[in-house]
Design a protein around this nucleic acid. Structure first.
Lengths: 340, 340
DNA sequence: GTGAAAGCGCTAACAC
DNA sequence: GTGTTAGCGCTTTCAC
């Protein structure tokens, strides 16, 4: 199981290890004869460079570490595609970690990446506060994805969650809704501004009295519980804005159980434009975030620091976009009547 | 940005670097006074051990590398949870890679992990043939997940895909179906045995003449195309077994578009028991695989080689289980009549 | 073109 | 208890 080293290759090829090193990295300072002997020896031996040793001496790993808070959210699959693609193009490799939605595990995952001496760190939608990301940023270029950080020292890329929340309300109000409730996303990334956007837009439309938020999170379960709470209250809204698509899908499940029809009895809007939301069976009105662009941008921010020496922090805010589908519709006479 | 090293800590604490090394690893050979001085110095400096250096000298990285072929399949989120949990419990860290469903990228991802000198490698549902996994296994303990390998030298954990395919057919036949088509999974992991199981069970039930497979893959798109092909053929089956849940969801979408009802006009069965398949809106009959157990088992196989010195290859086959839901039902008189 | 030598940050004998 | 020393596998001057 002992792996061959550069020295084994050198011996077999009858040259010094420095020459092997040069040849392996494609230097043209090596004679054709030596080069061939070296490559042959390497192939015979099944030589594979040791990235740890290389990283140690070069002080560069060419690895971008990505802490993923929640692999269960399909939203991130596409962000990851963007990250992966951008990293590869730039000559880096992306390595991922799971935080399993636990602040404690997220911190450990980040620590693991840092000990590995990744050249750059991406923290995706942490449940954990930005403190540890800020701490990490002191030792390596870091960008937080999906959550705006208060601190001015750290790069981040988000969509404008507050605006997204407002777009949802504007859309529902334009359909005649007034009783618009919100199942919020708890401590999830972007949940707070989404809620702020909801409240702000409600006020702007003169609906302050109708503002109504219930506890939630970015999980199906939370969406179910939130919807149950709203339905069991005996005061049913005509529309519900759920903090993300996953939770919205849970909410729809509860509506089905209760025998309520969407959008006839109740309009539902999600957030993320997760792939699944476009399926006929859900046909969920939602807010689109440019997923692969988010991933791509995160890597770009890292590269600007790594390869171009940028120092000052930068925050990129991408535009959200309402995608109107069948789960939201003009408020029905019946629903309005029931309310009256 | 220069990181403090063990030497910086030693200087600041006024001791030698070996003592620091001992203290950091919790040896009790260090006096209380030194220990405290060392920890204080480390904290002051923000010292963080360099995993690359450590891995180099210890010849152990305590990292398990996982090549994920397709992050888009929610099926793997839970397998990953199992892997992560088991690895952490055993004192290892799991690091993930994306193969983005491309054989070429999968090979590169595996190579990256190998160069990093991970202690163990998990190859999850590779689109790539097992050749490269076998090659990898020569340098590090390796287990392939989700795809049975012909080679006897390599560990793998799968569910019994062939049996799973048979269970689907048995279920549908028991509901009176005879015209049961299959949208297969192409080169996807486990797709071949699922198809074999389908065909074998059809024969067993005396339905050889009804065997009918159309091309597919483990994507929504492929499921859509497969279902379109079946519907446009002018010879509609009464039930369709789709190779996995994702593709089945695509297939359902097409049925919705065509205005066909499930299960009244057509029964549909998937594979994986992905979380989403349980939602009311889909209510998809499917085959359950024990996801976190799969992940957990994969890590155990690695640990047996790593910590217990197992040499001979081992293949673990877990039992699939039919989960009957609303997308499959007794063949309707109308569907049968239309066929006649 | 090629080789010798130093050193990246750490651990592990081995002294004392 | 604590310090010294010799590498782990690689890259990188700097000679020749």
């Amino acid at each position: 199981m002992k792996q061959p080293t550069i020295l084994d290759v050198a011996k077999r090829a009858g040259v010094s290890k420095s020459l092997v090193s040069l040849a392996m990295r494609g230097s043209d300072q090596v004679s054709a004869a030596s080069r061939q002997a070296i490559f042959e020896a390497a192939a015979d031996l099944g030589y594979r460079p040791n990235a740890a040793a290389r990283s140690l001496v070069r002080q560069r790993s060419f690895i971008l570490g990505v802490m993923l808070s929640d692999l269960h959210n399909p939203f991130f699959a596409e962000v990851v595609d963007g990250i992966d693609d951008a990293a590869l193009t730039a000559g880096y490799r992306a390595l991922y970690n799971s935080g399993r939605r636990s602040p404690q595990l997220e911190a450990e995952a980040i620590e693991t990446l840092l000990e590995l001496r990744v050249d750059g760190l991406i923290v995706a939608a942490p449940a954990i506060g930005p403190k540890s990301a800020v701490a990490a940023a002191r030792s390596v270029p870091t960008v937080v994805v999906g959550r705006a950080t208060r601190s001015a020292e750290i790069d981040c890329v988000t969509n404008d969650d507050r605006l997204g929340g407002e777009l949802v309300v504007d859309h529902l109000v334009s359909l005649g809704h007034r009783q618009i409730a919100h199942i919020h996303g708890g401590s999830g990334a972007g949940a707070h501004p989404r809620r702020t956007g909801y409240e702000r837009a409600m006020r702007r439309h003169g609906l302050s009295a109708e503002i109504r938020s219930v506890a939630g999170a970015y999980t199906e379960d939370a969406g179910m519980r939130g919807m149950e709470e709203l339905l069991d209250s005996g005061d049913r809204p005509t529309a519900v804005f759920v903090a993300n698509d996953i939770a919205a899908i849970g909410a729809l499940d509860v509506l089905d159980e209760y025998g309520l029809r969407v959008p006839e009895d109740l309009s539902v809007v999600g957030y993320d434009n997760t792939h699944i939301s476009g399926r006929h069976r859900f046909d969920l009105t939602t807010i689109d975030q440019p997923r692969s662009e988010i991933g791509y941008t995160a890597v770009s921010l890292l590269l600007e620091r790594l390869d171009e020496g940028r120092i000052e922090a930068k925050r990129v805010v991408l535009a959200p976009r309402l995608v109107a589908r069948g789960s939201s519709a003009r408020v029905s006479l019946r629903a309005a009547a029931e309310r009256a």
